[in-house]
């Protein structure tokens, strides 16, 4: 177990808490599921409790909830127009889920839900699925105009359409990998530097003195990770808004 303490990958292990197996699929309630529940409960409780007084002049916590709401609202309105506001609950829940999952992951010994590609891919697939389903529902085959930009010479059209299709297909991949890789890399780096502190301190007085540097790095990285946690939630939400805009106005 001593090796686990400094193993930077150890934090990403999935541990089964309540084993569930249905139809040959392992659907156990794991630490990942636990932290998904925690994320949802923390985010929902925060939004619910801070706004329960419905003050006309908001307190600090209510301001945070309102800021998050208006932040996502403005983001969506800027990207997709007022028509896009029907997706507001979706984008708002995505933003809050990713943000709170990222932030919870920063606590020591906590599991980072968004450091697993299947989770981020699941969210990205949900976004792209919504875009495709809504796009075809609203515009029918007109949604395919998304892949045919205006003003392109006919002889270039096959190439451009091919590129557009590839870029569209790579969206869920890039959307999920961006969030996953950021969280993974950040947490590994944090763990490595924190591991240095532990290993160096074990070497005696010189080691303790030497461990000040990685400790300072770990503190700085924590601050950076706090920024990244917010930034990646923002990027995820912004890109979602832009993709939803494609579903609303495919003709661009």
């Amino acid at each position: 177990m001593a090796a686990d303490k400094v193993d930077p990958i150890h934090q990403f292990h999935i541990i089964k808490l309540v084993p569930i197996n249905i139809g040959g699929y392992d659907l156990s309630f794991t630490n990942s599921a636990l932290f998904m529940v925690a994320t949802v409960v923390v985010a929902a409780a925060f939004l619910f409790l801070t706004t329960s007084s419905r003050s006309l002049v908001p307190g600090r916590l209510q301001s945070i909830s309102e800021m998050a709401y208006e932040f996502v609202g403005n983001m969506l309105r800027d990207a997709a127009g007022t028509q896009g506001m029907k997706f507001f609950p979706f984008v708002f829940s995505l933003f809050m889920f990713v943000l709170v999952a990222n932030l919870l992951g920063l606590f020591p010994y906590f599991f980072t839900v968004t450091s697993h590609i299947i989770v981020t891919f699941g969210l990205a697939a949900l976004v792209i699925g919504t875009v495709v389903v809504y796009g075809f529902m609203k515009h029918g085959l007109g949604f395919l105009k998304l892949f045919v930009p205006h003003g392109v010479p006919v002889f270039l059209l096959p190439l451009v359409v091919l590129i557009e299709v590839i870029s569209f297909v790579s969206r869920p991949v890039s959307l999920s990998v961006r969030l996953f890789a950021n969280m993974l890399a950040g947490h590994i780096t944090l763990k490595v530097f924190s591991g240095f502190v532990v290993s160096l301190s074990a070497l005696g007085a010189v080691g303790v003195a030497g461990s000040v540097l990685p400790l300072a790095m770990a503190v700085a990285l924590t601050a950076l990770e706090l920024l990244v946690a917010f930034l990646q939630a923002y990027v995820f939400a912004v890109l979602t808004c832009m993709y939803l805009n494609d579903a609303l106005h495919p003709g661009h």
Partner: peptide
């Protein structure tokens, strides 16, 4: 770990979405 994570993501995020849509928003 994929099936379990996807299932629990669907459950938690689905409930979260419903809660936000019905109550918070």
């Amino acid at each position: 770990t994929f099936p379990s994570q996807l299932l629990w993501l669907a459950i938690t995020f689905g409930l979260f979405y419903l809660f936000l849509k019905r109550v918070v928003v």
